[in-house]
Design a protein around this nucleic acid. Structure first.
Length: 149
DNA sequence: CGGATTTGACCCGCGC
DNA sequence: GCGCGGGTCAAATCCG
């Protein structure tokens, strides 16, 4: 949305972001005040999970569009944007807003061809794709994507 | 009001 | 061992 200024200069920064650290995500813990119940924090180890993590499937699609927001049928929440060194354009990171659905989407524009957008999907969705694709264009667009691994 | 989005800072892994 | 790159999170802000 660079078209409009959603973040005016304002006048005052609440405080220096530099040292603004509520608790740095607190060390070890995302559950500081919840230890009362105790529960079983977690079993010793799950070394086997290592392999499971690698099972993450990664699908890359090259779509020819001017917009990065390619709606494939799921709701994505942008959680970050970073510029890569090889590319002149910044890369956008999206995540599926679902409970239990931790699918990640990575959108990157090719500096060579601004019209080409590389979308990389990581993981699989837990819920079905409930997205009414009425526009034929959308279908055609999806058909245009190729290159998967 | 809620959810989505933005931006900055921090973290981790790898390379040299 | 340190630096760079890439990736993620978290708070703040804005839009509907």
């Amino acid at each position: 949305m660079e078209s409009s200024l959603q973040r005016p200069p304002s006048s005052a920064l609440p405080s220096p972001r530099r040292s603004f650290r509520p608790s740095d995500r607190i060390s070890s813990a995302q559950v500081p005040s919840e230890a009362q119940g105790a529960h079983q924090m977690e079993s010793p180890v799950e070394e086997e999970k290592k392999a499971a993590q690698q099972q993450k499937q990664r699908y890359a699609f090259h779509t020819r569009s001017h917009v990065d927001i390619l709606d494939d049928g799921y709701r994505w929440r942008k959680y970050g944007q970073k510029a890569v060194k090889n590319n002149k354009f910044p890369r956008s990171y999206y995540r599926c807003t679902h409970q239990g659905c931790s699918v990640k989407k990575q959108v990157q524009r090719l500096s060579k061809d601004e019209a080409i957008v590389e979308t990389t999907y990581e993981g699989v969705h837990n819920h079905t794709t409930e997205k009414p694709i009425d526009s034929f264009e959308q279908v055609l667009e999806q058909m245009q994507m190729y290159s998967y691994f």
